[in-house]
Simulated assay, not measured.
Amino acid sequence: MTNRSGAGAVRPLALAWVGRHLDVGERIVRTEALHGGITAEMRRLTVGTRDGGTRDLVLRTFVDPLFVENAEELLNREADVLALLAGTAVPAPEPVAVDPTAAQCEYPSLLMTHLAGRTVLDDEGLEARVPLLARQLVAIHALRPAERPQAYEAWTTADAVVPPEGADAAAWAAATDVIRRPAPPCAGRFLHRDFHPGNVLFDVTPPSPAGPRITPANPRITGVVDWVQTSWGPADLDVAHCSTNLALLHGPAWGLRFAEAYEEAGGVLAATASERLYWRLLDGLAFATGLQWVTRPWREAGRAELTTRAAERRLDAYVTALLDTLG
C-alpha cells in the first residue's frame, strides 16, 4: 500500500505522473523520504512488478522557490547528464522521466532509477574510502562528452565573504585577497561540481539499533548522485569542493589529504601552489555563509556533533591550514 502521508508521501499529481511511466501491471507499493539533500525533496518509490517482485525509483522534487525558479535548467541538465553517463565508467542513476516546468506535477520533478548503496559520513573507515573517492573523481574528469556542459560558476566572490564568528581575521583577510585575483588559466574538464561524500554511495549496510553499520573490508563505490550542477572547468574546483567537505566532516587534515589522493589516482591539478590555493580557497570561503544548511543533513545522518559552530571552527582551521601549506 502506498504511503500517502508523512514525509514520504508523494503529492497526487506527481503520483499520477509517475504511474504513467511505469510498465503495464506495475504499481507503487511504498514511498520513503530520503534524507541528506539540501536543495530538493528526495523520495524512494518502491514499485511492485508483474512477477511479484519489486524495483525502486527515486523522485527528485524542487519545492523551494529559489530552486523552482531555476528548475527547468537544472532538471533538464541533470536528465541529460544521466543519459550521457549511461554505459560509462561512472555509476549513476538512469533518467526515467522529467517534468522540469511542473506541467504535470505539483512541482518540477525528475524520476530516475535507484542505485544500491548508502552514503557514509562516519570517521571509521575513512582511510579506505578517500582513495576510492579520488579514483572516482579522476574517472569523472576523464569523460569527454561530444557537447560540453555549461562553464562553471564561482559560488562566492571576495566581496561576499563573511568570516565565521571568532575566525582568524588576518587569515581570512589574506584568503579573501587570494580569491580577489583573476582566476588562473586552466584546462577544462567535465565536472560533477558538487562531488563530496554525501553524493557518493558505498556498499555498506545501514546502522541498526542492535549494532553499528557494517562496512566491508574492501568497500566499493556503487553510485554517484546529484548531477544538477554539472559543468566544465578546472579539475581543481571539484577537488577543492570534496576537500572542503572532508575538512568539515573529518577535520582539516583530511581536506588537505584529498588533493594528494587525487594525484596518486592519476589526476592532474594546477601546476603551481598559488593556483591550487586559489581554487581551494574559492570553494572553502563559499561555505562560510551556508554552514547551517550544509550541516543539517549531516546531523540527520547521525553526525549530531557537527553543529554549525563546530563546522565554523573546522572551516577556520582549514582555511588557515591552506594558507600555511600553499600560501
Rank of each mutant, 00 (worst) to 15 (best):
L249E: 05
H35N: 14
R189W: 12
D99I: 06
A83L: 13
A14P: 12
L277P: 00
E124T: 14
H192G: 04
A92V: 04
Y152N: 10
P207S: 02
D324F: 07
A286E: 06
V68L: 12
R144S: 14
I179S: 12
L34C: 11
E106I: 06
W227A: 04
E263V: 09
E300L: 05
E153W: 07
E78Q: 15
N218G: 13
A170W: 02
D238L: 05
A270R: 02
L57C: 03
T31G: 05
G37F: 00
V18E: 04
G6D: 07
R213C: 10
A83D: 15
D203G: 10
L121A: 09
V47D: 10
P252L: 03
V268A: 15
C105R: 11
R313C: 15
A103D: 13
L248R: 04
G6A: 10
H141Q: 14
L45A: 08
R276D: 00
V224S: 02
A265H: 07
V96G: 03
T307E: 08
L126K: 08
D123L: 12
A158R: 02
T222L: 09
Y152V: 12
D99R: 05
V161T: 03
G52V: 01
R309Q: 13
L281V: 05
L315Y: 00
P145D: 10
V178W: 03
V68N: 13
L57I: 07
A183T: 07
L277K: 01
H196E: 05
A271H: 08
G188T: 07
P149D: 14
V130R: 02
A273M: 01
T101S: 15
A321E: 12
Q292F: 07
A103I: 13
R44L: 06
W172Q: 08
L246I: 07
A116Q: 11
P164K: 06
A171Q: 03
A154R: 12
E127A: 10
D159W: 08
P297E: 01
R299H: 05
A128G: 06
A16S: 06
A139Y: 07
V319Y: 08
A288I: 09
A288V: 07
D236I: 00
A9S: 09
E275I: 05
T230D: 01
A9N: 07
W227N: 03
Y152F: 15
A92K: 06
T113A: 08
V18G: 02
P164T: 10
L66N: 12
N245Y: 10
S109N: 11
L121Q: 10
A321Y: 04
F202N: 01
A158Q: 07
A270N: 07
A9R: 10
I179V: 15
Q104N: 15
G251V: 09
G53L: 11
A183E: 08
A235M: 08
